[in-house]
């Protein structure tokens, strides 16, 4: 069976003022696969992730050259509605960032922003998202309590639920477990395995073991360049380039 691409980047360059943070990145990201972006700090992996839903637009003095396509459509074209793009390409950040609202309102937030007012629809979509993020059983009896009362791991799964509620195609995760303990991390990783059945996931991680555990494809970035991409098993057992081997075996970075 042929795997269809979700995202394609071709000759992508990205600048912060004069600094070239991404240099000629070409990569294909397949549908319903987990792609891990690895590399040392400052290598460009998070910058690349943010290019995929135009989060970098929010930073002044940045510039994009090249081509990024979602389902074949150029996301940097003028006619693209960025809000709609970000609905299709959701994002989860390093630190859980729930709003100081109830659990229900956190998850319903994106739906309300998108104009959904029907209480039944809101209730159903919130429940579905909380079930998808494996949080429902833990919060169903206190759905109207403050989200700030949840543990760090629960807060992060709430943020995932919030991203899922608007029914995106793609989930971008920027070190989603780096502030969590091992048990909460494992829950997030198990969740990623479940979610990839329905979503395309791109995850930035500093943990090599996490990349090895959760991803199908691994892409190694170094100094703004994409050095090597391959299926995760190959990258972690027999990478083709010495630079990749040196990084994943901890010889540098």
């Amino acid at each position: 069976m042929e795997i269809s691409p979700k995202f394609t980047a071709r000759h992508l360059d990205f600048y912060y003022e004069d600094f070239k943070a991404l240099d000629d990145i070409s990569i294909t990201i397949n549908i319903n696969e987990v792609t891990a972006l690895i590399g040392p700090s400052g290598c460009g992996k998070s910058t690349f992730l943010r290019c995929l839903n135009r989060m970098n637009d929010l930073i002044s003095g940045t510039r994009v050259e090249g081509d990024v396509r979602l389902d074949g459509e150029d996301i940097y074209e003028k006619k693209i509605d960025v809000v709609s793009l970000r609905r299709r390409v959701g994002m989860v950040f390093q630190k859980p960032n729930p709003f100081p609202k109830t659990i229900f309102e956190n998850v319903a937030y994106g739906l309300r922003v998108n104009g959904i007012k029907d209480k039944k629809v809101l209730k159903d979509r919130v429940e579905k998202a909380l079930k998808q993020s494996a949080l429902w059983d833990e919060v169903k009896d206190r759905i109207n309590d403050s989200a700030l009362g949840l543990s760090g791991g629960q807060q992060q799964r709430l943020c995932i639920a919030r991203a899922l509620a608007v029914e995106p195609d793609v989930l971008l995760m920027d070190e989603p477990a780096s502030s969590l303990d091992p048990i909460a991390t494992q829950k997030i990783e198990d969740l990623i395995h479940e979610l990839k059945k329905n979503f395309t996931i791109i995850i930035v991680t500093h943990s090599m073991q996490q990349a090895a555990r959760v991803s199908d494809i691994t892409a190694f970035f170094y100094m703004g360049k994409l050095i090597e991409t391959g299926d995760t098993e190959t990258i972690f057992t027999r990478p083709s380039l010495k630079q990749t081997e040196d990084y994943i075996t901890g010889r540098f970075g």
Binding site: M208, A212, F236, T237, R238, E245, T249
Partner: peptide
């Protein structure tokens, strides 16, 4: 150490 690649081999 959770070795990788050549180290693991």
């Amino acid at each position: 150490e959770q070795p990788m690649a050549r180290d693991l081999r």
